[in-house]
Design a protein around this nucleic acid. Structure first.
Lengths: 248, 248
DNA sequence: CTTGGTTAAATGGCATACCAATTTGACGCA
DNA sequence: TGCGTCAAATTGGTATGCCATTTAACCAAG
């Protein structure tokens, strides 16, 4: 596995905290428990908890335990109606393309380099995958890093926050289910091309080009998602088409 | 000292990275070095590095070392840093203009009517104000209702949520202070004209027109805000120009 | 039955030791 | 002289063990 283990465990913990019903204030299982359950050392779990602590999910009390704080991420069970995949993609299309355009005029050379190395990483992962080594976690986090990196390049903290919020939505169960498909069905090469095109526009500081490239990228993701919903998975379409914007 | 040592060490590391001149990309001293220097175990240093990694300061490479990334312009977890007025307006400009364009193709007749009646109300309030009856609260809430109404017209719950989040930011003390000025200095007539132009574009379902109208509206708000910062209010500019995007 | 203190178990904090990946440079061969 | 190879040193990764704090269970005194 490419990623640092603590990040992997942290992702699983977050998933558990969002999916499962842990009431706010609950004491979570101990580090030792999780270590045993995930079959890693307590050190790794501890580091994962540190990540959650930094991100504001939990509070760690020495000698007592780890406690769930109010969730920073929007949780479907908070009474908010869950956002469907197509609706979320629409929102991302609108917002991220605008952010990309803005970033095109403000991105630094260092940030261009950072994005470039992310794409290098995507290329590597893709090659490995073709060799049979799949690493969904790594692919997913690289994808996210690229998109959030663009938001960061806008030099605007509010836009970064908004972009993060959009990506957090993937945690919802409904969405997670589809997400794997998108990154799996050998569309990864296509996404890489899209990302390269976006980066090229940012490099040229081409505002309109960046906007269009990002727009088309997400447009294509929507198309793929739509096509995938025609597969033979029973009950797959069921929830897809409840969303207002799903009727394309 | 912070409760957990890693936080203390992380703070010292950040200070060192800010003060000292470590060139971007430099390999930092090893975990063992810092452990010795700070007289703590390598574990603690390692946890501190994890914090820096999460916050985007450094990249950690197994077997190689820890490398300084471009210093994040704004560190995410340094406590929720307050967003400055110009930064917020930039974000609103980017996001709301994109939302307006999206809404232009989806707004319903009922929503057009609702927006129209909001403008009617703006007109009323303006007339009353000229007669000496000021009602800041009403003017403010009408303004917000118009902008959020457009977000709602996008038919996308996520976009509505984002727009709300943007408007919530005005409640911050720093921002509130300026906000009164913008709505007071008899710019209200101008804002009304802008809103009418935006609504007209939405009526025509003119995507680009709506985008531009919203963009120009907020652009003008920024100009006014900038001009107002030249007034004689002592300490007024002080905080305004600390924000990265303030240097127009 | 209540209350207070004592104690033992549980839990996170920290340090140490060993593992694995990477880097470096020395050595040998062309 | 230059380059390829390989082994040792370097460095982060992980596991384990012990320490300090907190919690709660228990018992004795009132």
């Amino acid at each position: 596995m490419a990623q640092r283990q603590y990040q992997h465990i942290a992702a699983r913990l977050k998933q558990e905290l969002t999916d499962q019903t842990f009431v706010v204030g609950t004491r979570l299982p101990t580090e030792r428990d999780y270590a045993q359950r995930f079959e890693v050392s307590r050190t790794v779990v501890r580091e994962a908890f540190i990540m959650l602590e930094i991100e504001g999910w939990v509070e760690v009390r020495k000698g007592s335990g780890t406690y769930l704080l109010e969730r920073p991420a929007r949780s479907p069970a908070d009474g908010d109606e869950e956002i469907g995949p197509f609706e979320l993609l629409d929102a991302r299309q609108v917002v991220e393309s605008a952010i990309a355009a803005h970033a095109a005029q403000r991105i630094s050379k260092a940030e261009l380099l950072a994005l470039s190395s992310l794409l290098e990483r995507e290329r590597e992962l893709l090659a490995r995958e073709e060799a049979g080594q799949r690493d969904f976690e790594a692919a997913d986090s690289t994808d996210q890093a690229f998109h959030l990196g663009i938001a960061r390049a806008s030099q605007n903290a509010m836009l970064v926050e908004i972009a993060q919020r959009l990506w957090e939505q993937r945690r919802s169960t409904m969405w997670r289910r589809l997400h794997g498909r998108i990154l799996d069905f050998s569309y990864r090469g296509e996404w890489l091309e899209h990302h390269q095109r976006i980066l090229a526009m940012l490099r040229k500081r081409d505002e309109e080009g960046a906007r269009d490239a990002m727009w088309n990228h997400i447009e294509r993701v929507k198309e793929v998602l739509f096509a995938l919903s025609d597969t033979d998975d029973p009950g797959f379409d069921g929830f897809l088409f409840d969303t207002p914007t799903a009727a394309h």
